[in-house]
């Protein structure tokens, strides 16, 4: 989820509009105070936070460590040159190309960290589907037919699942699926 936190209605809505055009895939939430932002951070996993420097200073001690942050700054001081390498700051007087550049760069970074984390341990939605079917006792062929994929793909998914979970047997996967409520008791038999 992407969060935008600024007291300025115009800036917030503007950023939201630009982000939606750049990146329609993810939920974007707009908040206008540090109170709202705190509540949001407590309840959701935010991957990218774009916040005014005033709000950031308020929540600083509470800000999660692994979060990617873009600071919204007031106008650029005269002595600072345009700096394409610094993607952590957005100035209120940045021009179109500067704004787009900073946002695109951050979206790319966010995707990179997300997929990196996912591929190492978390199961993808597709892999969860497969775990569910395996746990219910379906064969690779039955799973392939049900999910409209090839048996070969099912086998690849199963290899990745075993690697990610550290669980090798069908009954082990069933226990995993029950403990994680992917299936209910009684579904399987």
């Amino acid at each position: 989820m992407i969060a935008i936190a600024t007291a300025s209605f115009v800036v917030g809505k503007g950023l939201m509009h630009i982000l939606k055009e750049l990146y329609s895939g993810r939920r974007i939430v707009l908040v206008s105070s540090e109170m709202e932002l705190k509540a949001l951070l407590e309840q959701n996993k935010i991957s990218l936070l774009i916040a005014s420097i005033a709000i950031l200073n308020e929540i600083k001690p509470l800000a999660p460590k692994n979060i990617q942050i873009v600071k919204l700054m007031d106008s650029r001081p005269n002595y600072l040159q345009l700096d394409y390498n610094n993607s952590e700051l957005l100035y209120s007087d940045d021009d179109e190309s500067q704004v787009l550049h900073t946002l695109k760069r951050n979206l790319a970074l966010m995707d990179k960290t997300n997929t990196a984390n996912k591929s190492e341990s978390e199961l993808s939605d597709r892999e969860l589907d497969i775990v569910r079917e395996v746990a219910l006792g379906k064969t690779n062929k039955e799973i392939a037919d049900k999910l409209y994929i090839s048996t070969h793909t099912v086998i690849t998914h199963r290899k990745n699942i075993t690697r990610k979970l550290g669980i090798k047997t069908v009954s082990g996967l069933t226990v995993y699926a029950l403990l994680n409520k992917l299936i209910k008791m009684g579904d399987s038999f």
């Binding site: 979970l165 550290g166 669980i167 090798k168 009954s171 082990g172 226990v175 995993y176 403990l179």
Partner: peptide, 17 residues
Amino acid sequence: DIEAKLFDLKNILIKYL
């Protein structure tokens, strides 16, 4: 398969309960 089951049981206890 017997080795794999023992391996799974360890991970169930270590990670998933």
